[in-house]
């Protein structure tokens, strides 16, 4: 789907990333927004490089996040480590499938889908794809909104560890996997924030000009 609207960058206008004010660009000048003082750019600076760097780090951290235990439960002298997947399986076996689903979707599916979506967006922008501009923009919008919900597992671990402090009877301590998992969520959030969705549309406008 193509759209015939003029684009701000074509007209030499920069939209402030923070307050949205349109400002006429002056070549050779680093401008600041007259309304909110933020630095002005046509596009987010080094958007693709930053997004890739943060995304690759997040993908690396996903391995320890899934492999290492996120919490250790010690009860009556025995110590048991739980990874994210073993928590899901525990609830599935106990017949508590709605809860298993919530944890599986928020902690396993959302981070993976988010990373795949960003990879697709990055590659399609780099290959200057002319397909499905609107759908890709919607995909970016969903990616940006969904990301924060993965933090739910970190909060669950925090609450459990704060409450279950019964000495020898029962004790829950967070594991190293929780650190790796939180870093995956934060890195993918920063990665999505540094991606500029306007890059998806940039190629289309050049084409229309050449035609």
């Amino acid at each position: 789907m193509n759209c015939r609207a003029y684009r701000a960058a074509e007209q030499g206008l920069m939209a402030c990333h923070v307050c949205g004010l349109l400002v006429q660009a002056r070549p050779g000048h680093h401008l600041h927004c007259p309304r909110c003082s933020s630095a002005l750019h046509f596009r987010k600076p080094n958007s693709l490089t930053r997004t890739w760097a943060l995304l690759l780090t997040a993908m690396l951290m996903y391995i320890p996040a899934m492999g290492l235990p996120v919490m250790q439960t010690s009860a009556f002298g025995s110590i048991q480590g739980d990874t994210i997947m073993s928590g899901v399986i525990y609830f599935l076996k106990g017949g508590d499938w709605p809860l298993a689903l919530v944890i599986f979707v928020a902690s396993v599916m959302v981070p993976i889908l988010k990373m795949l979506a960003l990879i697709y967006l990055l590659i399609s922008v780099q290959r200057q794809s002319r397909l499905r501009h609107r759908q890709r923009t919607v995909l970016y919008r969903i990616t940006e909104i969904m990301g924060r919900w993965s933090m739910v597992d970190v909060f669950v671990i925090a609450i459990m560890a704060a409450l279950v402090q019964m000495g020898n009877l029962a004790q829950i301590t967070p594991g190293l996997g929780a650190v790796a998992f939180a870093s995956v969520v934060i890195l993918t959030m920063f990665s999505a924030l540094s991606f500029d969705p306007r890059l998806i549309w940039d190629h289309q406008e050049q084409l229309e000009h050449h035609e």
Partner: peptide, 12 residues
Amino acid sequence: ELIACHECDALQ
């Protein structure tokens, strides 16, 4: 008011 969309840069 002239606005540029923050997601696709379309002027409207």
